[in-house]
Simulated assay, not measured.
Amino acid sequence: MIQIENLSAVVAYDPERRASQVAFAAAGVRAVVFAFSAGQELAEHRAPAPILLQALEGELRVAAEGREVVLRPGGMLHLDAGVPHSVAADAAAKLLLCILK
């Protein structure tokens, strides 16, 4: 069993760069928390496995498959392996990325 009381506290905002920290790794999943300060982004890339994206704080714009969606706390997005996508934050936001194995 793995319990994390507050995923948002796993990583702090850094105004100089996008910050990230592995929250945990277990059979079938690796969870990473990202902290985006205003204007920071993750350029288009591909994940080697299926992923789940969930906003923990703020709003994040995710572009994939010719669409752009806004993730807010409580929302989740699933992408298959190899799908090109990018993530951007207009204001401070935190994101939980779960890489499924």
Rank of each mutant, 00 (worst) to 15 (best):
Q40Y: 09
A47G: 11
S37R: 01
R61C: 00
A47H: 11
A91R: 15
L100G: 08
H45P: 08
D80S: 05
V69H: 06
E44I: 00
V11N: 06
A9V: 08
L56E: 04
I51K: 12
R30C: 03
K101Q: 13
I2C: 04
V70W: 06
G75A: 07
G28A: 10
A31M: 05
A38L: 09
A88H: 10
G82D: 06
V69S: 04
P73Y: 14
G82I: 05
V29Q: 14
A35H: 06
I51L: 14
A81E: 11
P15E: 15
D14E: 15
R67V: 04
S37F: 02
A88Q: 11
I51E: 08
D80Y: 00
L79I: 06
R67G: 01
H78E: 09
Q54L: 08
L96A: 12
I51R: 12
A81Y: 07
E41K: 12
Q3N: 15
K94A: 04
E5G: 10
A93M: 00
A31G: 02
A38I: 09
A9F: 04
E41T: 04
V22M: 12
E57T: 00
K94F: 03
R18H: 02
G75L: 07
A81L: 07
M1E: 13
L79W: 00
G66H: 00
P73V: 13
L53P: 10
R61F: 00
E68N: 03
V33C: 03
L60S: 01
L95F: 05
E65C: 01
P73S: 13
A43M: 07
